[in-house]
Nucleic acid binder design. Structure first.
Lengths: 192, 192, 192, 192
DNA sequence: AATGAATGAGCTTTCATTCAT
DNA sequence: AATGAATGAAAGCTCATTCAT
């Protein structure tokens, strides 16, 4: 029972994500989501009473998976720099390998349509990664900046890299971009 | 006549931008734009045959103003570093001082609704600023990266800073953030 | 222009009243009103931004016509009793001759769906008739009762008569009912 | 078992009446009734295969209770006038003391949604009271009118009084209204 | 008897766009 | 150029009812 219900909910979310990333929130009627998921209009609203709730749920879902993947293999790294590099690489790879989901995240976070998410909920998700950069931020120009903000500044190039690679449709050397951008960030931050 | 026509077109665009940034593209009916601009429904479509064209026009309009403001005072700076710092500061200040327009730009650039803008058109607008960073990029980790991409990577923290300040509603020290983020970027890029 | 616009609005109201009285508020989709009126869905909402507004408008429209008809010939009557009898007869006749409209009024006034009408607006419409009964109420058992309430008590049998005749589908003697009920009321009120 | 089943049915009806009177038939989804009654959606339809049947049942239920209460103490009265006065007073008091149920009855009886109740079924319920007025009607202006119709005409002011008191939210003197309206009716009917 | 997920037709309302004037 | 009434497809959401368990 539980499995099937979850399956159905998961099915809806998966379908929704696909369509949202293809056509945008507003370009995707709930009826289309239902049809593509092979369920009825009413069933969709049984699981998500509002389109907005569906969108929010999809956002969390993606964010969670992204966070999980981004942390992969970090524990195995010896030095802090290696851990940071892992995360950096993982984050970029995730974006490039999940372009639809990635663009969904971007679309979501600059949509005036939805402003209602509790910030701490979001942070909980990325929280683990933050710690890796804690020490390094403390010895950098960002040492007096609020931690979360500092982290966002530091991480900003990741987004630029992902976008560039996605937009180039494979025309760019992913490894070089990852490497260059990481060294840029690391040098900037550590003065090493 | 021409003046009046331009005035009316400008009036529409100004009204549209205000509403778009308040309510988003989809939250802003063309009818509302017309009413708030004090013209008729039909007149709006006389100047912009399509809502999309109105949005695009608004985008260019903002982008142009932003580019102009970002270049202010750059010529007066002596060293390249000073020029870069000027641009950096100008860009952040512009975003913080024009939050609505800034968010509109963000919203626009990650909207799947509109993909149809020729990239070179966009670049033409930011182009001038690029040159300032040319030399510095060539001596950095980014030297083998395509110039435009390198520029975007370098500039990414600007966005993070602007967002942080806007979101903090005045709770952050703008000067410190500008300074710290610039030094971070500069160190990263120059190994200085 | 004005005439045509008014015509269209009137056409919508007329159609709506017909359908409402046949099928009830909830049994009448706005789309049906539009179709039967020979206009588009959107046009209906151009004139009545809300279904509720359409219903309210229809209510006033009927009420006004009823009030006008009820006052017919009253001025020509000599005595107060004759005037009262006229109104009594007119009111019953109107209800019987406009059964659909009459039932609409009933349906409306006991619908929890709509409670928002300013009472004075309603009274303005029936106001004129009230005066005829003023004097007679003052000399009756109702003399200490608030005027409007007294009037409603006095007039209540009209409704009973109308309903009876409508429900009997012509099986009842209208004249006798009008006459009997009026004498009943008049005797009760005047002790004559 | 039977008790439990009856209990559950009664529970549903009670809940339904409360909600219907608060929000109207159409404003009350069956799902809401079920939820508020603490049972499942399906169970409601086990006891009432149709929403309409639930509404009808609720109508009878209220009507029966009203009739029972209206007859209270009538047997103890000596004269016919006293019996009539009792009924008159009881009816008004019931309406005023059960405003929700009373409005439900009104709403029901002028709803085009439901026309399907056999009239004799309804009369059976009020029947007993009718007899008290039999004699008095026979000596009045209404003597040639069909009994049921005559009764309705006679009783009409009761409704006006109840509505007035309910609408006034306690601002009116209930006793005076009961008294005045009864004397009005009685004088009208008996010429006494 | 009881559940509650599933259905899908149907509803009110929105809105970009057209067009006669 | 300017108007604004008219359009009608489409959207998000509701809800009485069914049915497998």
């Amino acid at each position: 029972m539980i499995d099937e219900a979850n399956d159905k909910k998961a099915l809806i979310v998966r379908t929704a994500i696909r369509l949202f990333t293809e056509k945008g929130f507003h370009g995707t009627p709930t009826a289309l989501v239902a049809r593509e998921a092979g369920i009825s209009n009413g069933t969709l609203f049984h699981y998500f009473p509002t389109k907005e709730e569906l969108i929010n749920f999809a956002y969390y879902d993606i964010k969670k998976r992204m966070a999980a993947d981004t942390g992969a293999g970090v524990a195995r790294a010896r030095t802090n720099k290696e851990r940071a590099r892992r995360i950096w690489r993982n984050a970029i790879n995730w974006g490039v390998d999940h372009p639809a989901e990635y663009m969904f995240l971007q679309q979501f976070s600059s949509s005036p349509f939805i402003k209602k998410l509790p910030p701490d909920e979001i942070m909980k998700v990325v929280g683990i990664e933050l710690e890796v950069f804690l020490d390094v931020i403390r010895h950098s120009h960002l040492k007096d900046i609020e931690l979360e903000v500092a982290f966002n500044i530091l991480f900003a190039p990741v987004d630029a890299v992902v976008r560039a690679i996605i937009d180039s449709h494979g025309g760019l050397d992913r490894e070089r971009l990852i490497d260059s951008s990481f060294r840029l960030m690391w040098d900037g931050v550590s003065g090493e």
